[in-house]
Design a binder for these strands. Structure first.
Length: 594
RNA sequence: GCCGCCGUAGCUCAGUGGUAGAGCACACCCUUGGUAAGGGUGGGGUCGGAAGUUCAAUUCUUCUCGGCGGCACCA
């Protein structure tokens, strides 16, 4: 067995022979793991073909944590089928397979795969200059550019089929839907078990379950994609809003509230009616057509246009916790992550071209401050630049892109540039945060807009008393409050930051005798701004503690003879640590100042 | 929207062609208890909705609504 498995070029493409600027891939490295997963995809295909001879294999790449393979099959795969496939794969691995590479002519390839229209399509799409290679193992041959290990005997593979789902051929929704088998694969049984355990852990942390257990919200088929907030959930929601509001006030934002239902006259002018009508909820009333706003920006321009604005007013910052509705396809709905009615922590900043830097600088710092406050330290930054189809002068684009880059550089941020990925109306920065399970969530955004103010007739007077069209900067910090709440719930497993958590403290009377006193303490703490409850149930202390912990209440206060006599407060954290406070004010400060 | 799976008590779930069961939660009683489950008794379900097959449907079939895992979509 060779220590070098394959080669990697400067574009992170894998090759089985050395190419220009390539580096060797060492046995059992991260790259080798990917190659092993690709090997396993071939093993999966062989197993499927042996059990379902009429199955048409299509493509089967490695992915994060594993691999998949898409098949066109006559029947749908059941759980039993998956078990049998897995069993077959294990048999194959026990026998071991050597992967033999063979280069063929296009004509030969077309002949070999004449019964598989998918492979034929792939072959016909190859450039004539491309080498066509096959990998063979046992009696299974696949069209594949490789590379592969020489043999499955070079390593021990621990894998598990995780799911089967539909997937469109070539990812195009008008194409036939194939059956995709997902699996995970590792070099050891231990790593496999750890991965599967993490999957379980993620399931446990599911925000829907936490939302039910903690009594935060209700999702019902009475309004799919819309949230019924319960009192505790609304407290959380309002606390987040309150915190962001206070940060925005420091930056001279003007908070506004615009209607959710607006005449389509506005949407026609803004262009949304032409482009997104299908995704808007509409209503016919008084012989007029209205639509629930899918975004706030046109409404903010309506406000902007209602007054005479001069250069002295700029930058003018309108913020809104704006309730927006979008008709999302039924299959896209997903708990609080993807809903039809959501609240953007939105703002539109009207400014002149030379104010872009300052505005974006304060905004990027705001975004980072807010993420930190919620415990997110790892943030990724992307700048998206001018796409082919776009409006605005090259000068404006260059200016805006350069200022965005300068902002991130001056703040010592590393960032990726996504060439041509900007919106047609301007470039943007996107902020992606990483949670404690390693998942990434794109939340914040800053988008420069050269289009909408002009389109809706926004103008301000410059120093020479001439009308100018302002530049509008769209920005959101957490994006959608609903989605952000789901993210922080899963990130913390329900142990929300103290300053937003709906109930901060549970007072636990040791027996009924202390309930009255507990209620008095609760009243006092409530007056001091602490969110607290008393557990006056007829349960023992241990039971009450267990209860408050399982409801994710971060602190409890045991109330009994000792506490009343010593006139002190012993705070118990959910992990069981105790801290003593001599005075109720000091105790309340612990909660209020956090 | 598409493919697959799923929908039974407030929650988590079991179950059957003859109209249902567990644990937790809840109520009441006993216990007045000191840091993660004390004991007993009891109430609670049009088995997501509609239609069909059948002597009989929660169970089988079709349609429909909703959820989940993906795919597609995400201004």
């Amino acid at each position: 067995m060779s220590e070098v498995v394959a080669y990697k070029d400067s574009n992170n493409n894998y090759w089985d022979t050395e190419v220009e600027n390539s580096t060797p891939i060492k046995h059992k490295s991260e790259d080798a793991l990917n190659i092993m997963r690709h090997d396993m995809a071939h093993i999966l295909a062989e197993a499927v073909i042996s059990l379902f001879p009429n199955a048409k294999p299509t493509i089967g790449p490695f992915i994060k944590n594993g691999f998949y393979y898409d098949f066109d099959l006559e029947s749908t795969l059941s759980d039993d089928d998956l078990e049998n496939i897995e069993k077959k794969m294990k048999e194959i691995l026990l026998e071991g397979r050597d992967f033999l590479k063979r280069a063929v002519s296009k004509k030969e390839a077309l002949e070999i795969f004449k019964d598989n229209k998918y492979k034929l399509e792939l072959i016909n799409n190859l450039d004539n200059s491309d080498e066509i290679t096959l990998y063979e193992q046992n009696n299974f041959t696949d069209l594949c550019k490789g590379p592969h290990h020489k043999s499955t005997k070079d390593y021990k593979a621990s894998f598990k089929i995780t799911s089967v789902s539909g997937a469109y051929w070539r990812g195009i929704s008008t194409n036939k839907m194939l059956q995709r088998i997902y699996a995970t694969a590792w070099y050891s049984e231990k790593e496999l078990r750890v991965y599967l355990k993490n999957l379980e852990e993620a399931k446990e942390r599911n925000h829907r379950r936490l939302g039910t257990d903690m009594g935060l919200f209700l999702l019902t088929d009475l309004s799919a994609g819309n949230v019924f907030w319960k009192d505790k959930g609304l407290t959380l929601y309002q606390n987040i809003e309150k915190y962001i509001r206070s940060e925005q006030q420091k930056l001279n934002y003007f908070e506004v509230k615009t209607p959710e239902l607006v005449s389509n006259e506005l949407w026609i002018k803004s262009g949304h009616w032409d482009n997104f009508k299908e995704n808007m909820f509409t209503s016919e009333t008084d012989n007029k057509t209205f639509a629930l706003k899918p975004m706030n920006c046109p409404c903010h321009i309506v406000l902007f246009n209602s007054q005479l604005i001069t250069y002295k007013d700029l930058p003018l910052r309108y913020s809104e916790f704006g309730k927006c509705h979008r008709y999302e396809p039924s299959g896209a709905l997903n708990g609080l992550f993807r809903v039809r009615g959501f609240t953007q922590d939105d703002a539109h900043i009207f400014c002149s071209g030379d104010q872009i830097y300052d505005v974006c600088n304060e905004t990027t710092q705001l975004i980072e401050r807010v993420y930190k406050k919620f415990g997110f330290e790892k943030i990724k930054y992307n700048i998206s630049t001018r796409p082919e189809k776009s409006i605005g002068t090259q000068e404006n684009w260059d200016n805006a892109e350069n200022q965005l880059k300068k902002v991130l550089k001056d703040n010592n941020k590393e960032f990726n540039i996504l060439e041509g990925e900007g919106a047609f109306y301007g470039p943007k920065i996107e902020y992606t945060l990483e949670d404690s399970l390693g998942r990434e969530w794109q939340c914040g955004t800053i988008q420069i807009d050269f289009n909408l103010p002009d389109r809706l007739g926004a103008k301000y007077k410059d120093k020479d008393d001439k009308n100018q069209v302002p530049i509008m900067i769209h920005r959101a910090v957490v994006g959608s409050l609903e989605r952000f709440i789901a993210i922080i719930l899963e990130n913390t497993n329900g142990w929300l930051p103290l300053f937003v958590t709906p109930i901060q403290l549970a007072i636990l009377p040791v027996s009924e005798k202390f309930v009255d006193h507990s209620n008095q303490v609760k009243e006092e703490l409530q007056q001091l701004g602490v969110r607290t409850i008393v557990d006056s149930s007829d349960n023992k202390l241990g039971y009450k503690i267990r209860n408050s912990v399982s409801k994710k209440i971060p602190y409890s206060l045991v109330m009994g003879e000792k506490e009343i006599e010593s006139k002190s407060f012993t705070l118990r954290s959910n992990e069981g640590k105790n801290t003593s406070f001599d005075d109720i004010k000091l105790l309340s400060n612990f909660f209020v100042s956090n």
